[in-house]
Design a protein around this nucleic acid. Structure first.
Lengths: 191, 191
DNA sequence: CGGTGTGATGACAGAACCTGTCATCACTTT
DNA sequence: AAAGTGATGACAGGTTCTGTCATCACACCG
């Protein structure tokens, strides 16, 4: 449907990531982004709530993936096992797009503003998992605890995945981190 | 030492909390805050990095309290026990200033911008605990996991404390939540 | 006692972010 | 062919935040 070039949203996101990477987030103005995408500043704000949001396109998809994975876990799986399965599904997705994920992460982690936005998105993911757990019968506060703890594991595992390009198996790191956490909680800190 | 009225920083923080409470965060401009404090806009930004930061005065103190509590935990305490002790110390502090904490929380939780800032502060608290754990010999990734998980417990327990004014014992809620988490991780979801 | 810092503040300009509002225009529907 | 729709452009304007220079009380120093 288009009098105009198609996919304005995608063009804006693409232009933004390029410019943020090329010359830095703070050095890039919204006008520059829209100029590269062949649009005007006002239109940028019709597609994205603010200058940060353009980098968090995929969050909604991640949320759905986590919620669906929790919902589809075997009925006899524990809450934490359902969360673990969801995390591994998301980890596999990250790994399948490793290059883009790493590039985006480099931009985000370099700017406090963007890290803040990332954290609230992660909180949203936790909330989605908690809701899905409650739907399958997990009571409170266990649902919230399992979900928040899952995000804590995701943070730690993701950081290790980023730091160690030689170990590309993110789902494996997630599984290992969860196991490690069980040890930590069980009071047997490993050597 | 002053040609000017003393404690400009405190006056600004006080005026800001008042105005945010009276008329809302978004409806309050920095100029209004400085007018009430008898200063100019430019001076506000000499004391606080931005309009949000003025609400996060106490974070540095909380960070020190957590780090100190972890460091001072018995040498034979596990990582998670040290984290638990630190959380309870912070919880006691919150409870001792319950009114102010609740008031501030009402403002923060009503605005996404402020929740973002809160989350990055919480991440800073986790980092401080992780550092303190490493100092006392906890290896990675256990240190990061224990710290991040501790913050996850804090979030859940704090929310319960806020939601249920009839149950004022935050340290107790923290201890119970940690115990509950051990159950969740041990795969025995309670009735 | 007078000169010279020093440090916090004021004054002012200006860039960038974000919003409200109305006009435009191709395409669709009736 | 007329009316409707939806995305975009154009423009004005408020707010946040920064850079820069001036001011002024106090401290220190000779």
């Amino acid at each position: 449907m288009g009098r105009w070039e198609p996919n304005a949203r995608g063009r804006l996101a693409q232009a933004a990531l390029e410019l943020y990477t090329e010359q830095g987030y703070e050095q890039t103005t919204v006008v520059e982004i829209t100029a590269r995408a062949g649009l005007t500043e006002r239109t940028f704000y019709r597609h994205f709530a603010d200058k940060r949001e353009v980098l968090f396109f995929g969050t909604e998809m991640a949320k759905e993936l986590l919620a669906r994975s929790v919902a589809e876990a075997p009925a006899d799986a524990s809450a934490m096992d359902a969360v673990g399965a969801a995390l591994e599904a998301l980890g596999a997705e990250f790994q399948a797009n490793a290059e883009r994920v790493r590039l985006r992460n480099a931009v985000v982690s370099a700017h406090a503003e963007l890290r803040e936005r990332e954290l609230i998105k992660l909180a949203g993911l936790a909330e989605a998992m908690a809701d899905a757990l409650r739907d399958r019968g997990t009571p409170d506060p266990a649902a919230g605890l399992a979900a928040e703890t899952g995000i804590a594991v995701l943070k730690v595992a993701f950081a290790r995945w980023i730091d160690d390009p030689g170990r590309p198996d993110l789902p494996g790191i997630l599984r290992a981190s969860t196991a490690e956490l069980r040890n930590v909680l069980a009071d047997r800190t490993p050597a």
